[in-house]
Write a protein that binds this DNA or RNA. Structure first.
Lengths: 213, 213, 213, 213
DNA sequence: AATGAATGAGAATTCATTCAT
DNA sequence: TATGAATGAATTCTCATTCAT
């Protein structure tokens, strides 16, 4: 665990950490957290086993590093997303698009993180506090505002927000469990979902998408 | 692994297997599959380590046993659900109710199964073939039929079915990741969800639920 | 371990012991002593695991039983062999013939016994005391007598006896290690050996066998 | 398992392997292969259990290492032996002397190897292919040549070679089974054997050795 | 006497982590 | 800082033996 204030050092350290995290992502994706060994990660990273412990305090800490890196990229995008101003439906589709493309490109890392979070309290709480809860908070405020402005039905905001977020989590998970349909049509999902969520299943004046079976 | 045709023997064997599976469910829920040891399970079951191997071929086979037990209880209910005849919306709520109550009571087992399935191909494929795919098949037929009878908007059936199923999976997962709101209001979900899905978010002639935040 | 004086009982016991020993011979031959399990033996014998312990005190005791059974059959023949009166060379061939045919039919049991004796002091000492030493004793006397009668060169009797006996042990062992030549021509060995031993390698007035390569 | 091209490294690795093999030889000789534990070997070698697996892939691989080490020392001598030119009988005695002294100094390792080979196909085949068969091949050619030059009776070469080789194997084995006479007079064996083999048992113009009983 | 489920000591092997070089 | 050999705790699984039925 290196500590320094020299900016060049810091750059090197960041680069080495990234190198290890990349290797870990590859190895964890392939074998899962428990079946992957520190040796595996080191080999893929092209360094010695022991070197990993210069940058991470333990194997679990490497997983945490992966989680944090995922967070950071998520947050960066988040601001952008929320900063934009559009009509609700259009904004929602755009938001989903970038969220889902982000999820998609990190799907295999997410597989391992989710697997381990389900079963590791520490990791789980970290993720909940740092990712899930803040997301729900922001979304609830947004939905509440939208509702107050009359753009939404009188929905139960907390549960609705959770339902919508969970739909994505669930779709990703189902895909991770092997569903081909979702995998192949991942890009169509934002539109289908927005239609489903806005217009509902119920027949009506509807306009959009149709594929049947 | 014990094989017999004596019905009394079979009862004893089933009982012992159940005893081990119960213990495993407890231990796995607490520690996860990998951190749980066979010794742990044996201790909780009140038997010797070796005895487990009289009834299961390996630690993984115990997990599989848990999966199969979950299947069986699921299937039994499935028939009942599909056998009933009601108007679509009412049926849907009823169906969700019993599905979700089943999920709820097995949430901790599901936590471990999901965690391991994400990362264990064999288990994953088994689950996909035995549980997910059949469920999607049945649901697609049902939705298709409903759509043809004009009870549904012109939706994309395969993706819609997946979206809906994933919403449940996602809600359960979110709850397993520590969300209190979902946990506390689990019983309200069927109604909220059906309203969301049928009526959509879009404001209109709506009637139901309102809680805001 | 059954004890009784009822002759019918004794017969039953002997039969059951034989049944177990037969099974053990089969299983040991196939897997070796350590890799064979008591369960294996029981299965082949068509009885329950525990039953073996009614007739033998341990797995090693079963091996001992096999050793003793081999002894008995050996001894029976021994008497016959030594009882006969012929000219030395002819007697020797005849003796070798029956010895070697006995060895041959028990080769696979001998494989396991030898393997285990090499490494198990108790078994080894038993075998040495009960089989090897007595054989050497008898053979030394016999050779000594033959030498005194002028039928033999002035050989070193103890070493010569050991060398001759060892040639058989060695041939059997070489065959057990996979040599095909010995296996296929086992029946020719008595003559070849007697010629070799009596006439030696040295060229002379010789008469017999020739095959070259 | 450590692979490198740095010659200093290689030396260290060879030394560590030798240290482990020495320990294994000791422990195996004392307890046999199966009763010896990896922990035993590690303790005698003065290292941790796990370290053994840095140099050998399994306990069986350690035994194989012992076999190979035996091979190497054997081969080195072999060349020397066959390179020399002497009269047949003298050469034979010299050859036996060094062969038997080699066997003698490795008797306890051979005990375990033989014990395990009898019962382990893989090991057996390796030994047969690498040691026994080549030895027979060379010896057959040599005997054939000698025979053609008239130094030998019209013997059956393949069987005679096997008989002679087996005599050594058998003598060593008999000694390993506890025979004191052979152990104490090991050094006399080459002469006694050569006399026996060349001149045979049959009385004649003979000159040598006499000890009677 | 026969059964076979239960026992639990024991063994091989793995692997995260340390630390001397 | 990097290395990678060494460590040894921990784990799964086996199987000889026991004993209640």
């Amino acid at each position: 665990m290196v500590e320094t204030h020299d900016p060049i050092q810091e750059l090197l350290i960041a680069a080495r950490r990234a190198q290890i995290l990349d290797a870990a992502a590859t190895v964890f994706a392939e074998k899962g957290f428990h079946r992957a060994t520190v040796k595996d990660i080191a080999r893929v990273a092209g360094i010695a086993d022991g070197t990993i412990y210069t940058y991470f305090s333990s194997k679990t800490d490497v997983l945490l590093g992966l989680l944090n890196r995922l967070n950071e990229s998520t947050e960066r995008q988040e601001q952008f997303a929320l900063g934009s101003e559009q009509d609700f439906r259009a904004f929602f589709i755009a938001y989903l698009r970038q969220r889902m493309s982000l999820l998609w490109s990190n799907a295999e890392v997410f597989r391992v993180l989710l697997s381990e979070m389900l079963v590791n309290v520490e990791l789980r709480e970290l993720y909940y506090q740092q990712v899930i809860m803040p997301t729900f908070k922001v979304a609830e405020q947004y939905f509440q505002a939208q509702r107050e402005e009359g753009h939404l039905r009188k929905i139960d905001v907390p549960l609705t927000v959770r339902a919508i977020a969970s739909t994505f989590l669930g779709l990703l998970t189902t895909q991770l469990l092997g569903d081909q349909e979702i995998a192949e049509r991942w890009e169509e999902l934002p539109e289908v979902l927005v239609t489903l969520m806005f217009d509902g299943l119920k027949p009506g004046e509807d306009t959009t998408h149709d594929r049947g079976q």
